[in-house]
């Protein structure tokens, strides 16, 4: 009787890790290559494709746009999604069931259809400027994640706690901020990360909503690959990976990642 896992289990687990990690290793390797074309294993070692990212103005601009859209879109989604999730849980009995489903629709509809619909209605139909259309599109895209994650942490919230605060003299709106929000803090942070990363990586919706002069990083990567075969694409990918890892590391340090699994 021992706690050691079976050797076959260890081998399978190792294979899964290899399967997951190899593409990433290849991308990192390709990004460090000194050649003017994508290759693996890298020939020579150089960071010049990393500096090249910032020499191409389209990359500089789209990185900024992507971060702006991700931050603003996530922020808007939280502002709309948190009260929505609260209402859906607080008045679960009173509200019709389809209302909850409504907030999940953007996930259920194929993203490509969703993107096309937004193009037709916002850009073509209403003549909304490109940046605003992108922002609205991304807000709607990440809203379901926010509502779902916040709902999950509200599901275990006992609303009699809220009533206790009210009975002790705290006005309902104040109670929401001083009692309800602090108890769904972990859910809010999880929702933020999930929404931020979803927005940052989105292709399908952005593909339809980007336009002349304004694009996002993933779309720019696609455009770049169509014209060039140099390792810049690989180095941008590595940069994105490290950005994500950095966000996760900050979260791990402050909260622990376990709450993401809840």
């Amino acid at each position: 009787m021992t706690d050691r896992p079976h050797p076959i289990l260890i081998i399978v687990a190792a294979l899964v890790y290899v399967f997951l990690m190899v593409p990433l290793v290849i991308v990192v390797g390709a990004a460090l290559s000194d050649t003017t074309y994508l290759t693996f294993p890298p020939q020579g070692l150089s960071l010049r494709w990393f500096t090249n990212i910032f020499e191409i103005s389209a990359f500089r601009r789209t990185i900024v746009t992507s971060l702006q859209i991700a931050f603003l879109g996530t922020f808007l989604a939280l502002v709309i999604g948190i009260p929505a999730a609260y209402a859906l849980n607080r008045y679960r009995v009173e509200l019709p069931r389809w209302l909850g489903t409504l907030f999940v629709l953007p996930i259920l509809v194929p993203e490509i259809v969703f993107g096309f619909a937004l193009l037709k209605s916002l850009t073509v139909g209403a003549g909304v400027p490109i940046f605003v259309a992108l922002l609205i599109g991304h807000t709607l895209l990440v809203l379901p994640y926010v509502v779902r994650v916040i709902s999950a942490s509200l599901a275990s919230f006992d609303f009699s706690i809220e009533e206790a605060a009210i009975s002790l003299g705290s006005a309902p709106l104040k109670t929401f901020f001083t009692i309800v929000l602090p108890n769904v803090r972990a859910g809010m942070i999880a929702a933020f990360i999930l929404a931020f990363i979803t927005s940052l990586n989105d292709v399908s919706v952005s593909l339809f909503l980007t336009g002349p002069g304004i694009s996002t990083l993933p779309i720019q990567i696609l455009a770049h690959v169509e014209q060039f075969f140099d390792p810049t694409v690989a180095s941008v990918s590595v940069l994105l990976m490290f950005l994500t890892v950095a966000v996760m590391a900050v979260v791990e340090r402050t909260l622990g990642l376990t709450f993401l699994a809840k």
Partner: peptide, 18 residues
């Protein structure tokens, strides 16, 4: 409104602020 009634309440599930 309930927050101005000045009534002390004790709940079955305690309802303490976690």
């Amino acid at each position: 409104p309930p927050h101005r009634r000045d009534i002390g309440l004790v709940f079955q599930n305690y309802a303490l602020f976690p």
